[in-house]
Computed example of a mutant assay.
Amino acid sequence: MQKLTTRHPAGRPAPSGAPHAFAGAVTLADAGAEAADRDRSLSALTVEALTGAGFARHFVPRRWGGTEGGFAELLARAAELGEASASAAWCAMLWAAHGRFATRLPEQAQQELWAAGPDVRLSAALAPPSGRVERRPDGWLLDGNWHCVSGALHADWFLLAVPGTEPGGGEALVLAVPAERLTVSRTWHAPGLRGTGSDSVAATGVVVPAHRAVPLAELLAARPEASSRGGQAPALLGGGLLFCAPALGAARRALRAWTAEATAARPGRESELARAADARLALARSAGEIEAAELLLRQAAERADHGPLDAQTVGRNQRDAAVGLDLLVTAVERLVRSGGVHTRSGADGVLDRAWRDLHTAASHAALRLQSAADAWALTLVS
């Protein structure tokens, strides 16, 4: 078990917003991708570069020094980062998304989070609610364990969902807890997205003040009165498509790695692409599917930024995110199967890692095609 220590966001260099900060983060993530896959966590250097590139502050209100950015911009940046490292993109995207959720906390809690600066890395465990709380005069007494908490080792604060305390369950709550009050266990052993360090978090007798709690339903719902689009949008309007951003980047990188291998000429032999019609067909179909997925996700991001906040728009975005990821998985699966073992193990293992990362991303509950299909279709008949 590893006890986390307090971070000091105010001591970090403020992101300049210049392209070189983001480009430097991409370069570091690329260089550290293999080590992150092996070590099951991003390096401290990569984490600080991602923070310096502005991901944690992306949805933070301007009054706290944040960017109040949009969904389309985050999708594009996370996808580009995903070409270097899907794990880095996954963590960076979630630190941004969780900052959006934190805008639903009471004012005093927001001040505690961001008064010293907006570059606070927030990890979260929201579904299903876990642990237990007891009401106390000064707030809540928290105990429990939460699993698959991405970026846990590098978080400054956590958003933890707990079941309600009323008879029959009651309303679930989300509590904001500083990292130093929690313990992380290294339990992440998934085949893909290994570098996300999606480990387990434990709380033992942690007192959480009442102002650091918000109903889970309120955190996830639309808030049309909020000052920014990120604050207004319900969780499901942008959540699924942002989960797809690292997968889109991984698929692009896989396509490049496969194409480089397939076009490489060998002594006395034409390249695979020149001599084999089935290789050309695999390339055409997979490249087209990856581009189609990107178009779906871009349209969904535009709706998240500018479309109605109604159930049909939410359902359509859920549908397009799940269909888009299905296209990405299908495209890379075809490349792996058509290229054979030599292609999977070539290009420094990039194609193999992308294949594993995509399948792990596809297992996320937010991206399951049947659930997304149900959510969208039922808005048409309600």
Rank of each mutant, 00 (worst) to 15 (best):
Q232R: 15
T5E: 10
E73K: 07
A88S: 08
A354D: 01
V47K: 03
D352E: 14
G24L: 00
G340V: 13
S130G: 15
S271W: 07
G349S: 09
E80P: 05
N317C: 15
P137N: 03
A179P: 04
A49C: 05
E218G: 04
L328E: 01
G169S: 07
L325K: 03
D348A: 15
P178Y: 06
G82I: 10
D320R: 14
P163Q: 12
A293K: 04
A245S: 11
P191A: 11
A176E: 07
S286M: 07
V214D: 01
G240L: 05
A172R: 01
G268F: 06
C91N: 13
D357S: 08
E171N: 11
V214Y: 02
L273E: 09
G139M: 07
A125T: 00
A56W: 07
D199R: 04
R194E: 03
L236W: 11
W64L: 11
L141Y: 09
V162D: 12
T204P: 00
P308T: 09
T313S: 14
A86F: 02
A375C: 07
A247T: 04
A72Y: 00
Q299E: 13
R344S: 13
E289K: 11
A179V: 01
R40T: 01
R38L: 11
A203Q: 00
R275H: 11
L75R: 09
A172T: 07
R256W: 02
A293I: 12
A86W: 02
G288L: 03
P308S: 14
G66Y: 06
W188R: 05
N145M: 14
R368I: 02
T183E: 10
L94D: 04
L283A: 08
A127D: 14
G82R: 08
D357G: 06
A210L: 04
D326N: 13
L335Y: 07
A102F: 00
S198E: 03
G32D: 14
A10L: 05
T343Q: 09
E166P: 11
A301C: 13
P209L: 05
D374Q: 15
R212Y: 03
E73R: 08
L237H: 08
P13V: 02
V206K: 06
F101P: 02
W140F: 12
A322V: 04
V336Y: 07
V174R: 03
A282D: 00
R40Y: 06
G144K: 11
V214I: 08
E112Y: 12
L81G: 07
L159T: 02
E171C: 10
A361Y: 01
A124S: 15
L81S: 05
T46R: 10
D156S: 13
D357V: 05
R38Q: 13
L358C: 12
